[in-house]
Amino acid sequence: MEQQYDVVVIGGGAAGLSGALTLSRARRSVLVVDSGAPRNAPAGHVHNYLGREGTPPAELAAIGRAEVTGYGAEVEPGEAVAARPVPDGFVVDLADGRSVQARRLLVTTGLVDELPTVRGLREQWGRGVLHCPYCHGWEVRDQPIGVLSTGPFGAHQALMWRQWSADVTLFLHTGPEPSDDEWEQLAARGIAVVTGEVVAVESAGEQLSGVRLASGQVVPRAAVVVAPRFTARSAVLESLGVAAVDQEMAGHVVGSAVPADPSGATAVPGVWVAGNVTDLRAQVISSAAAGLNAGAMINADLITEDTRRAVAARAVFSARTERELCDMVLGDRRHGI
């Protein structure tokens, strides 16, 4: 028989651990299944997390796990591969062949950053190859930055990163030609534009050093900005009939995400989501907040069910029988005498 919990949390990042903390503090039995492959593992530090600014991602996760287990929750390394509904909740199948049962599920499996096919990008991802200025802009301030255009937002990215450095170059690569307005904006902000396809990013030791064009020319750069495709890790949810859907900006598909209401509830009753699996823009601190909100809503849903069950258990007695039973057992004490 599968071990049973009030809630199984699938994913041990900021959203999952925050939800587990909320639920375990609400005296729920909680299991966190963590595959140990967080999206932000390549990054050196977490930023914009008030009170934890500059904390390495692995350290923040370790702190979270200690807090969660301190309230009685369990955190187990492993991978959830599928889930299925049963009369009293769900069964979650793990990659090692075991299964666990839960009354409710919180899925916080995040997303995968699919990078453009350019040699060297993956090796420098999270260090010299970046995508979010709010995550990494300060760290490369005043350095030579290249923006690799692969879609309609290349000029927009270059103008954004210009806030952090006066030396920004837009590499058109496979992106479209800027519009007349964009050309004027780029020129006004002193952003250079390089045509031609990029074939590689160059490194000198651990440090990114330049961008190599198909022509053989290398343009020195200290950092390169890319726009990944953000693909939800939704396999477990899909096994329950919850599919990720394409997310578009200005008619351009930028990734996929699992639909949910503001509380994180999906179309399947009893299944919630939080973090990047449902919100492509969520950073660590907002993912943690979403986990808290989903955890609170799951606990409220369980309270409703617990109350319904308690009322149903009393339904074998009529109101008259209840009064007679109280009189027989308590007598005058029923009235405080």
Rank of each mutant, 00 (worst) to 15 (best):
F90T: 11
V100Y: 06
P85H: 07
P87V: 06
A102P: 10
P85M: 04
A102F: 02
G110L: 01
G126K: 07
P116W: 03
L121Y: 01
G78L: 04
V86C: 12
P77E: 14
A83T: 11
A83N: 10
Q101C: 08
S99H: 04
L130V: 10
V129C: 12
G110K: 02
A83E: 08
R84I: 00
V81C: 05
A102G: 10
A83Q: 11
V91L: 06
G120F: 03
G89L: 05
V86W: 01
F90W: 06
G128S: 13
L94Y: 04
L115K: 02
A83D: 12
R127T: 15
C132H: 06
P87W: 02
H131D: 15
D113M: 02
V118S: 06
T109N: 08
D96C: 09
G126N: 13
V81A: 08
A80Y: 05
A80W: 04
E123V: 05
D93Q: 14
S99L: 02
G126M: 08
S99W: 01
P77H: 14
D113P: 01
T108P: 03
V112R: 15
R84Y: 00
V92L: 04
V91W: 00
R104D: 09
V129S: 13
Q101K: 15
W125T: 13
A95C: 00
R104H: 13
V92K: 06
G128H: 10
T108L: 05
S99R: 13
L115W: 01
L111A: 14
E114Q: 15
G97D: 10
P116R: 00
C132G: 11
S99C: 08
T108M: 04
Q101E: 14
G128Q: 13
T108F: 02
R98C: 03
H131E: 15
V81E: 14
